[in-house]
Amino acid sequence: MFEARLVQGALLKKVMEAIKELLNEASFDCAHSGILLQAMDNSHVSLVSLNLRREGFDKYRCDRNLVMGMNLSSMSKILKCASNDDIITMKAQDNADTVTFVFESPKQEKISDYEMKLTNLDQDHLGIPETEYSCVIKLPSAEFARICRDLSQFGESIVISCTKEGVKFSAAGDIGTANIKLAQTATVDKEEDAVMVDMQEPVTLTFACKYLNMFTKATPLSPQVCLSMSPDVPLVVEYKIEDIGHIRYYLAPRIGD
């Protein structure tokens, strides 16, 4: 028996918004410690890794490990039926071929349940090594979304260049060039407004706008985003999900001309 009850059901709705453009389907690996999801986009250029710890749920039961393959377009349709203040429970029997979503309104006057068929997915599970990154940049997530959106008008790629002075985002194309420089903030009233740069060595990498823009669909999950870069390895874009976990996107850099 698997059962996970989330009082802040809106978080699950936001998680869905954060992955559904990138992924058509994904396996939810449910274990005693929580729920993990790892999946590549269709073109295998990026990877999504979602971690929801059991402690973040107000009720969590997983008697045996369960892999639930879900069509995310179907799951999204179902989660759209939940109100933002609903409590959401996901549950499934062991070896079941369906999962049930239960939505409870805060005062319990409306309770809905939706059963969805599971699908068998044969997905590669990739090993992500623990890495010390050369540059770790924290910035407000809305600022990052704005930068990606603005620079996408200029070209298909964004160059991210991190030095000890700060971080520079650049794009170039037919209409011209654009550069946005963010300096590390000295003092801020709110930590979530800060720009912080932790640099061991300067790094400049180029990434496809299309994917960065899809990652920014996670912006409502967290006021801050963390970008980690090292030479010639995938960028990590991480959004914390309150006290429950995180979503990380990995994106292969663009190389050559």
Partner: peptide, 13 residues
Amino acid sequence: MAQKSIKVYFKPS
């Protein structure tokens, strides 16, 4: 510009 598969960086486990 070319782009390698993410599988080049992270091997199947």
